[in-house]
Amino acid sequence: MAELALENITYVYGERTPFEIKALDDVSLTVREGSVTGIIGHTGSGKSTLVQLLNGLERPTSGRVLLDGKDIWEKPKEIKKIRFRVGLVMQYPEYQLFEETIRADIAFGPKNMGLSEEEINHRVKEATEFVGLDPILLDKSPFDLSGGQKRRAAIAGVMAMRPEILVLDEPAAGLDPRGRDIILKGIRDYGKKTGSTVIIVSHSMEDMATYCDDIIVMSHGKVYLSGTRDEVFAHAGKLTEVGLDVPQITRLALLLEERGIPLPHGIYTVDAALDALRSLFR
């Protein structure tokens, strides 16, 4: 297992041109080993840039990305190895499917790793289970699948490489509520079962509250807040300052509390709220 940390990362687009933009400004953070960490922030807060630094797709303008305490850019020629250890699922990954069958596409990553046929088959099967994809679909062409199924296949393609750190940029964007839940639950399962660290980028507070242990809030290229879920959501006021909010159900619980109804802290899901309210009426 591996620990991931960023140290004084700054990233500038189009340096020394009229279009210069500072996407990340002196970002330092540590991702807890084996946790599910959410990175949240508005469009343009630098979160998508951040994830591309984690597996060495982009090189920081200054600062270091540390994997197990070692700079990933120490040997630039071996950056490919880093990409197998830190798996990245980009936004709308279904557009990257290209093989004739879903099975071949999921196997593409493991094949590039040079694994044996047997191991590849095993991993494809395992990844398919994680994302909840029907095995019948494995021999179909990507074009015969629905949007949600394609998304799951694409995520499985990265999971099959069994990365120690799995990074996903908006894995549930544009899906219906059921599809969102299946995918996010599958991702969390992957992290818990393999002991890998999972990093999810999103702008949905609801998803973050339900599936993440730790949360990092980004704003204007800087880390605005970070900590465990409870720590971050305790700062409801600070979140609204940057145009974010605690989940609606948490807000409701807080409002009820203000009106003198004694609810426990840390209610992030409708189910939790239901339990708390039920116990009050008992």
């Binding site: 699922v89 980009m90 990954p93 557009y95 990553g109 990265v158």
Partner: peptide
């Protein structure tokens, strides 16, 4: 460049 990055992440060199 997006697709290239996505495939690089899957180990294409």
């Amino acid at each position: 460049s997006k697709i290239m990055n996505a495939q690089k992440a899957r180990g294409v060199d």
